[in-house]
Design a binder for these strands. Structure first.
Lengths: 337, 337
DNA sequence: CCTTGGCACTCGTAGGTCCCGAGTGCTAAG
DNA sequence: CTTAGCACTCGGGACCTACGAGTGCCAAGG
């Protein structure tokens, strides 16, 4: 139903519109891309494309603009991910290589994506439950209060104060700390729950009450509350693309943790780029934006997701290239540490 | 040179303009505030106020708008900080009371300020150098690499990986950890530098090389790099106030750590509210905004600064009230833990 | 010297009209 | 199926006008 040329026309429309921001007409189309047919023929093709819902005209007598469905077809069949230049790759490598902690890696990743795509970047911290316990530290604050610090193998450091049912001396704390670390160290946080009963048996009765309180907080509050940690950057780039009215709406959505999570939530398989275009996006207020996202981490062990958000009129091949490249490097960097 | 009534007129102009967003004329002024003089008299007063540079007219024949100088006079002499309502105070108390970690306190503080003022909130983490060392943890990652975790009495937890000149076994690590903590624990980070030489003497020669590497990183990199940590929120509120052109500029500035720091940098004395209006602000790109900021922490021991940023046309008394109240509660919350 | 009513003047905004041109759809011929 | 030709549409810019809020000034009165 759509012959080769019509697809080429659609691709040309998308490319022109993305680069000029203006509805593209049949005439300028034949000029810019040297089609060997006349503008009238292109007009006929465009009529068909419009009938099928791939393009639309904003005003009766203006050029055509791609619809979400049109972008979808473009992304699926008419374009390929654009690899980064050598210079860009080297820039990523050196920039991310200089990171000295997980926080730093994440912050730099956001800035990198913002820089490369000139859009909004969203990066999730490695999932807690998918991480393994590297160390658990208990720092006494008061007789019945201590600071619980969890360090994972992915570099996350989460803290939480715990109120104890009974007073505790330093020796008990040290002992429990040692036992907890030998028992749970190296295990995934998602598996830790089942090992707790086992752990309690190794402790003298006098230490169990408090130890249980600590473990309860560790598994219930600390992990649950911090499981999803996510940051974004590049909001200034939204102001450039004229979002007409929606800017405030978009900014509001971005500042909601929950929304950000849902934004990346649909990212399905690891190592695959997910693209959600306009209304495909379920989040209200972001239906005039597109999201390109993917997992990062080792192929066999995905850690979390990252992505880029911009107007539906975005450079998909370029954005996809940047997201893919950055995700790979981040996975690499984190695997080393 | 400015009699009582002229000041009242200025106050009325500021208040009207802030609430209506529209230039205010002599006629509407006498209506809204029941002056017992005619509009002609007010006009004369306004002419004087304009001559002195406190107000200006956007177009030849429009009402008057306060200048930065006008706002300055208003803040200094014509208004007083507006205390929060009882309901608001209670809301602050319960909301901040539920925080379980420093990160959480800071995040909640930002959201609170955004909520209360409907503007942009900026909150600094407690200064590292002003904090005392509560605990230092060394987690071996590899024979020649370990993770250094610093926990301060203000609840900050900073991490950093350290490359060691020589391989280290677990016993050495434990020993050094113990010595470091007994020597440095409880001392201010700003004082820690001088104690390091003392510390080295307590260690066997074989452990000194690595211990020195760790301490160097602790004092040089970790503290320095993270000394200033600062977050903001409420960017969506900028979109509401029409910043005409400058929105992008403002957003860009806010995303720069350095700029944020300079923004609060001028906040002078603890317990005093600092207000910087429009061009008083040195940061380029934020010269059409005002900043209300203050220190938080105990009166005798300020921890860091927080503030609110908005258009010069802002509700100063209300904003100042919110900033002051929130700063007090945050100081209180952090003092407890 | 301050206040006030009166009045002419300014000028930005809103609404209306006109024209241009890009872009379209249709038709008839190749 | 392609193409040239042509009538048609309609958004946007240029231009104009009327309106009215708001001003500055002046001369008279307290």
């Amino acid at each position: 139903m759509l012959d080769e040329r019509k697809l080429t026309v659609l691709r040309a429309i998308v490319e022109d519109y993305v680069s000029t921001t203006e509805p593209v007409g049949s005439k300028s189309l034949v000029d810019r891309h040297h089609f060997d047919v006349s503008s009238a023929t292109i007009r006929n093709d465009m009529a068909v494309l419009e009938e099928q819902g791939f393009i639309a005209q904003p005003h009766t007598s203006a050029g055509r603009v791609p619809t979400d469905k049109g972008y979808r077809l473009f992304v699926d069949r008419l374009s390929s991910v654009k690899p980064l230049s050598v210079a860009e790759r080297r820039a990523i490598e050196t920039f991310l290589g200089g990171a000295y902690s997980l926080d730093d890696v994440v912050t730099r990743t956001v800035r990198l994506l913002v820089q490369l795509t000139r859009q909004v970047a969203v990066v999730q911290y490695p999932s807690l439950t998918r991480s393994a316990i590297r160390h658990i530290e208990l720092v006494p604050l008061a007789p019945q209060r201590l600071l619980l610090v969890l360090i994972t193998d992915t570099g996350r450091v989460e803290q939480c104060t715990v109120e104890l049912p009974e007073p505790w001396d330093d020796d008990s704390v040290s002992h429990v700390r040692a036992v907890v670390n030998t028992c749970l160290g190296g295990h995934k946080l998602s598996d830790a729950a089942v090992m707790v009963s086992d752990l309690a048996e190794r402790l003298p009765a006098g230490e169990r009450v408090n130890a249980n309180a600590v473990l309860a907080v560790l598994l219930a509050s600390l992990v649950e509350r911090n499981e999803e940690k996510i940051v974004f950057g590049g909001a200034a780039n939204l102001a450039a693309h004229d979002f007409s009215k929606g800017l405030r709406e978009v900014l509001e959505a971005l500042e909601e943790q929950v929304v950000l999570m849902r934004l990346l939530g649909e990212t399905t398989e690891p190592a695959i780029l997910t693209v959600r275009i306009g209304t495909e996006n379920e989040v209200a207020g972001l239906q005039s934006t597109s999201v390109v996202s993917t997992w990062y981490g080792n192929a066999d062990q995905p850690l979390a997701k990252l992505g880029v958000l911009g107007p539906t009129r975005m450079d998909y091949p370029g954005t996809m290239g940047a997201v893919r490249a950055v995700a790979r490097y981040v996975g690499q960097i984190l695997a080393e540490s």
